[in-house]
Nucleic acid binder design. Structure first.
Lengths: 111, 111
DNA sequence: TATATATTTTGATAATTCTAGAAATATAGT
DNA sequence: ACTATATTTCTAGAATTATCAAAATATATA
C-alpha cells in the first residue's frame, strides 16, 4: 500500500452518496447487489450511480461481475482491510514511549 | 456516527499530503508534533499546511493544544476508531447467509 | 514598547469533481 | 431483425478544492 492508493480510496469514500453505496455493498456480503438494485435503493439517476461505481472500481474498493445484462457489484473486503491497516498500523512507533502499549487489531474476514 | 461525518473524515484523508500529515501524527503518539515540526517534516509552505490541519481539525481527526507560541497537533485515536467501525461493522448483515461467519474486529487503544 | 517566532487568514488562480440529461452500447428474448 | 432491459459514455454547467504568496494575528521576551 502506498499513500497515493490509500488516499484515492479514502477520497472515493469521501462523499456521502458514494459512502452509502459502498456501505450497502459491505452489508450485502458476497451476494452483492446489481446496479439496478442499488439504483432503486439509493434513489439516484443511473448515470450518476454509474460514475460513482466507476470511482469505487478504479479505487479497487469494489468488484463487478456481469450476469447476462445485469452487473453484480460487491465490496472488496481485502482492500478495505488493507486500507484500515495502512491508516493505523504504525501507531505510536515514533513516540519516545514506543508502541508497546498500543493495542492495534483490525480483522475482517467474510465467508 | 452519521454518513456526512464519516464522509467528511474520509474526504479529509483523501489527499496524499493530508494523509501523510495524519499518519505522521498517528506515528507520533500522544506527544504529538508541532505545526513547525510538521512543516519541516512535510516540506510544504506554512499556509498550505495550516489549511490542511484546519481540514483535519474540522473533521475531528486531530486535536490541537497551544503551548506558548507553538501549537501541538495530535491524532484523535477515538475518532478514527469510530470511523473504521462505521465502515465495516455492519458487514454482511443484509446477506441471506447473515454475518455469523464474519469476523470483524477493530481495536485501537494507545496509552 | 519593540522585536522575534509561530501560525493563521486573506485573496486569487488553476484544477478537479459532482451531477444528471441525452445518447449510445451491450445482452437477451421474441 | 426487432424489442426490451440494463448500464455506460458523452457533454456541459455549477460547485468545490488545492495551492501558496502576502498580510495579519498571537504569544513571549528583552
Amino acid at each position: 500500500m502506498n499513500v497515493e492508493t490509500a488516499a484515492s480510496q479514502m477520497e472515493a469514500l469521501g462523499k456521502p452518496k458514494r459512502l452509502d453505496i459502498y456501505r450497502a455493498l459491505i452489508r450485502a456480503g458476497k451476494e452483492g447487489l446489481s446496479v439496478g438494485a442499488l439504483q432503486e435503493k439509493m434513489a439516484i439517476p443511473g448515470s450518476t450511480l454509474s460514475h460513482h461505481l466507476k470511482t469505487l472500481m478504479i479505487a479497487d474498493l469494489i468488484t463487478q461481475e456481469r450476469q447476462a445484462t445485469t452487473l453484480i457489484c460487491r465490496a472488496n473486503y481485502a482492500s478495505v482491510k488493507q486500507l484500515i491497516d495502512y491508516l493505523v498500523c504504525e501507531c505510536c512507533i515514533d513516540s519516545s514511549q514506543g508502541n508497546a502499549d498500543c493495542e492495534i487489531n483490525t480483522s475482517l474476514t467474510c465467508s
